[in-house]
Design a protein around this nucleic acid. Structure first.
Lengths: 220, 220
DNA sequence: TCCTACACGTGACAC
DNA sequence: TGTGTCACGTGTAGG
C-alpha cells in the first residue's frame, strides 16, 4: 500500500463551475464552496487517506461476508451480496423449519395440546365451515379380530393430514396399508388399521370407532 | 435520476501525464492511452452509464441485505455489511444448536433403558445400524411438468412418517396420490408429487430432488 | 474490438 | 473550524 502521491499543497485544477447537480434524487445543492482558496489551506490528503481507509474497510467486510457463505458463485461484489442474501434467507428457512419441528416433537409425548394456538385454528375453521362445505365422511368396516378398514374424507388443509395421523396414532389406531388421494381440495384416506384401544370381548366397537374418528377429523 | 451531463463528444481536459501509478499494490502500469482523440470516438458515456447502473444495483443489493437483518444499527454501508455478518453467524449458531437439539431429542426414545449404562446404548445403536440394515431407498421418476413420482423406503419409527410428510411439504413437495405399506419394520411410501421448489426451465431437477429426499429421510 | 468490473481521487454534505 | 461518508466520473485490466 504505497502511494507516491503527496496530494498536499499543489493543485493542477481549478473548480469548474459547470453543471453542479450531483447524483442522487434530491440533494439540496447549495454550492457552499467549502474551500478557502486564498490560503491554499484545507489540504485534501486527509480526505484522501480517509477515503482509502474507508474503501479498504468496506472491502474487508465484503471479503469477510463472502467467507461466510458456502455457495460462492462469483468474486464480484454484487454477487457476493446476492449470495449473502440468499444464504441468509436459506438460513432463516432452516431455522424456522427446525424450530417448528422441534416444537412439534416436544408436543408429541403429551398427545394433543388442549389450549394450543387458538387464533389460527379459529379462522381456519370459520373459513372451512363457511366456504367449501365439504362434508367430512367416515366409514369403518369390521375385518375380524381387532382389524378394521376405515375410509375418511375431509377438506385439504395444510398440516391437517399429519395431525390426523398423529391423532389416530395417539388414539390407538395402528395403520398398516393406507392410500391417500386428493382431488379438488378434498382428501380421501383409505386404510387398514388395528384398533387396539376399542376392543370389547374380542370385537371392535365399530360404531364407537366411527364416532371417535369423526370427532377427531372435525376437531383438527 | 436525471443528469444534465451529456458527456459525449466534448472534452474539457486533456490527459495530464503526471504521476500515473494508481492505487493498489502492484499494478502493471502500461499507460496504453486507449482513447483515440483524433476521431473524438470512444465516447465515454457508455462507460458512465454502465457505472451508474452498477452502482445502483450494488446499492439495491445492500438495501435488500439490510432489509433482511433484524438488528439495524446504522444506515452506513460498512455497518450494513457488519450487521449482515453478525446476523449470518447468529443464524448459523441457531441452526447448529437447533439441529443438535433435534438429533438429541430423536435419540431419546432409545434412551429409556432401565439400566441406563451408556455403553449399552452405544452398542445397541451400533447393533441396530449393523443388524437390521434396512437401507433407506429413494427413487424419483420424472412425469413431465413439475410432476414426479417418488418411492421411499425407510425404517419404521415412531412419528417418523408424519415428520417426513412435514419435511416434504416444507420443502415444496405437494403429494397428490400416495400409498403407504408397511412390513417387518420397513415402510414403503409411493406417491405422485408436484415438486414446486425444484423447477429449472420447466424441468424438474430429478437428481437433486432425489438427493434432497434422501437427505430428508436420513435426517429424520 | 467492445464490454464489464473495479479502485481511485474528488466535491458535497452531515455530524 | 474538522472528520467521516457518500456518489460521482474516470482510467485501466481482463475477458
Amino acid at each position: 500500500m504505497e502511494y507516491q502521491y503527496l496530494d498536499c499543497g499543489f493543485e493542477g485544477l481549478s473548480i469548474t463551475e459547470d453543471g453542479n447537480v450531483s447524483g442522487t434524487v434530491s440533494r439540496t445543492v447549495k454550492r457552499k464552496s467549502n474551500y478557502d482558496y486564498t490560503s491554499g489551506h484545507e489540504c485534501k490528503s486527509k480526505n484522501l487517506q480517509a477515503e482509502r481507509r474507508r474503501r479498504q474497510k468496506l472491502s474487508d467486510r465484503l471479503l469477510t461476508l463472502r467467507a461466510l457463505a458456502p455457495r460462492i458463485t462469483n468474486m464480484k461484489k454484487e454477487t457476493i451480496i446476492e449470495d449473502a442474501i440468499n444464504y441468509i434467507q436459506e438460513l432463516q428457512g432452516n431455522v424456522k423449519f427446525l424450530s417448528d419441528q422441534l416444537h412439534l416433537l416436544e408436543m408429541e409425548p403429551f398427545s394433543e395440546a388442549p389450549g394450543g394456538s387458538p387464533k389460527k385454528e379459529e379462522t381456519d375453521d370459520v373459513e372451512e365451515t363457511n366456504k367449501h362445505m365439504i362434508q367430512e365422511e367416515v366409514e369403518v368396516g369390521y375385518m375380524g379380530g381387532n382389524k378394521v378398514q376405515i375410509k375418511i374424507i375431509f377438506k385439504k388443509k395444510r398440516g391437517k393430514f399429519t395431525k390426523l395421523l398423529e391423532a389416530l396414532s395417539s388414539f390407538g389406531f395402528q395403520l398398516s396399508d393406507t392410500s391417500i388421494t386428493s382431488a379438488k381440495g378434498a382428501i380421501l384416506v383409505s386404510s387398514f388399521a388395528e384398533a387396539k384401544g376399542l376392543i370389547y370381548d374380542d370385537r371392535v366397537a365399530v360404531e364407537e370407532a366411527r364416532e371417535l374418528l369423526l370427532k377427531i377429523v372435525r376437531s383438527i
